[in-house]
C-alpha cells in the first residue's frame, strides 16, 4: 500500500518535472531567439548607417529592451543557483547534512525578504504605466514586467527546492 503510494507520487513527480523541463526548453528557445534578434539588429544598424546614412533610432532601444528581457527570463527560468556567481567556500567544505541546512537557511532568509517585498515590487511596475520609452513609446510597465516575472519565478523555484530538500531522497538533490 505504502509502496504503491510512493510509486504514484514518483510517477506524478516525473510528469511534473517533465512539464517543467519542457517549459524551460521553451524559455531557452525564446531567449536564444531574442539574442539572435539583438545581434541581427546591431549588424543591420551599422550597415544602414554606412549605406543609407540613417541612424536607425529604434535599434538601440529595441536591443536594450530585448537584452533586459533575456537577462530576467533566463535568471527566472534557466540559470540554476549553483551556476550563478556564488561564494561557495563555506558550502563546498560542509558534509551533506550541513549543505542541506545551509540551503534551507539561505532560501528562508532571502526568499522570505523577497516574498515580503514582492507586492510592492509589482505595485511599482504597474505604477510605471505613465512612462514610456523615448523612441518606440512602449509603456514602461510592460517593458519592466520581466523583473516581476523573474522575482516570482525565483520564489517558485525556491519553494520547489525546499520541497525537494524536505523529502527522503534529499541527498540526491543537493
Amino acid at each position: 500500500m505504502q509502496s504503491e503510494n510512493a510509486m504514484t507520487a514518483s510517477a506524478d513527480r516525473g510528469a511534473w518535472q517533465k512539464a517543467i523541463r519542457r517549459a524551460q526548453r521553451g524559455v531557452e528557445i525564446l531567449c536564444n531567439l531574442l539574442f539572435v534578434i539583438v545581434f541581427v539588429v546591431f549588424l543591420y544598424k551599422v550597415a544602414v548607417r554606412h549605406t543609407a546614412g540613417d541612424a536607425v533610432a529604434w535599434a538601440d532601444e529595441v536591443t536594450v529592451v530585448l537584452f533586459i528581457w533575456i537577462i530576467f527570463l533566463a535568471n527566472g527560468f534557466l540559470v540554476e543557483d549553483r551556476r550563478q556567481i556564488c561564494f561557495d567556500l563555506v558550502d563546498r567544505n560542509l558534509p551533506p547534512q550541513g549543505r542541506r541546512i545551509v540551503a534551507v537557511l539561505r532560501i528562508l532568509l532571502l526568499g522570505g525578504i523577497i516574498a515580503w517585498s514582492l507586492p510592492a515590487a509589482f505595485d511599482y511596475i504597474l505604477f510605471l504605466w505613465r512612462e514610456r520609452t523615448p523612441v518606440m513609446l512602449w509603456r514602461l510597465d510592460v517593458v519592466y514586467f520581466c523583473f516581476g516575472i523573474f522575482l516570482a519565478a525565483t520564489l517558485v523555484r525556491w519553494a520547489l527546492r525546499l520541497f525537494e530538500l524536505s523529502r527522503s531522497d534529499w541527498r540526491n538533490r543537493l
Binding site: R49, G53, A55, A57, D60, E61, P134, V135, L137
Partner: peptide, 14 residues
Amino acid sequence: AGVKMRMPAGPEWL
C-alpha cells in the same frame, strides 16, 4: 545635410 549629429533619442529630437 547628411551630417551625422549626435542627439539624445526621442521623437522631439528627431
